[in-house]
Nucleic acid binder design. Structure first.
Lengths: 148, 148
DNA sequence: AAAATTAGTTGTATTTGTCAACTAATAAAC
DNA sequence: GTTTATTAGTTGACAAATACAACTAATTTT
């Protein structure tokens, strides 16, 4: 029984990996954007756009669960593409506030169209109730994961 | 409404990313193993161990949704660590059957203990019914993804 | 004032992934 | 049987992401 459960879990892991691959491929095959983004770049840009308060790099690293230097590297790319600006905080010059530029918001809008299309395709055949449960489970699992 | 759904989807995406990071960190921080494995190496080794028929690299690439050269790289590592053997097929010398070694099975057993522990922690607070629905949804989404 | 902590940066190494080109083996076509 | 096309794996080059340690400058704590 335990063994059966474990197998099932690894199977699910592989399924989720497939989702990410599809997402990644879809994002990275976009050719109409002013700037090309990798899936990780887009994810961070999007997450940043949702924050209502000013955030610094360290905040994004924590939020995304990434190493600070990993975040720095991605922000470097986004800044170079003109989608994000670092603005030194006046009260503490070590801190950089991260701001999404106009071009950044345009890129987000464009890539969100892609995401929306993909999501529509992926949820074909699923009831709203199933999706809600899925969401609930993912949320609970994430809460558990954060405790680790 | 559409916008709200999209945000929710990106949010879920981030949650699932977090799961993978936790899994990856757990796997890669194992220090008692004879050999250290990355999460991708372990995943492929485990998937291979489940196959009841002999499989070749191409099969694994398809099954894992990876590029053939990506699979080759991982198998190179696993073979070098002595966990997997390539055995040329007698009926077609282009094909390599992939066989898990004794050490390979030992490694799987050890890492599965880790996975089991992690899963227990992650599913805390979830009913079996929720987990089953989650599984069903993931399965359906994957079927949809394969069609893309 | 000195020591400790913090935010970001840099360097290095590793892993994984993509894609194209290639080789050798096999299958298909003629 | 010969030629052409396809296949399985390999190689090379490049890119992205990640980890970790060490570092610098700014700030906080002692």
């Amino acid at each position: 029984m335990k063994e059966k459960m474990d197998l099932s879990i690894m199977d699910m892991g592989r399924m989720m990996q497939e989702l990410f691959r599809v997402f990644k491929k879809r994002i990275e095959s976009e050719e109409n954007a002013e700037v090309k983004l990798s899936s990780e770049q887009f994810s961070l840009l999007h997450a940043l756009s949702l924050k209502e308060e000013e955030v610094i790099q360290k905040d994004m690293a924590e939020m995304m669960g990434k190493d600070k230097s990993a975040v720095l590297r991605i922000i470097d790319c986004l800044e170079e593409k003109g989608l994000v600006r670092r603005v030194a905080a006046m009260e503490d010059r070590r801190k950089n506030y991260l701001m999404v530029t106009k071009a950044g918001y345009r890129a987000i809008d464009l890539y969100m169209v892609i995401v929306y299309e993909l999501v529509k395709e992926l949820r074909d055949g699923l009831s709203q109730e199933d999706v809600d449960t899925f969401h609930k489970v993912v949320n609970q699992i994430r809460c558990n994961a954060i405790k680790l």
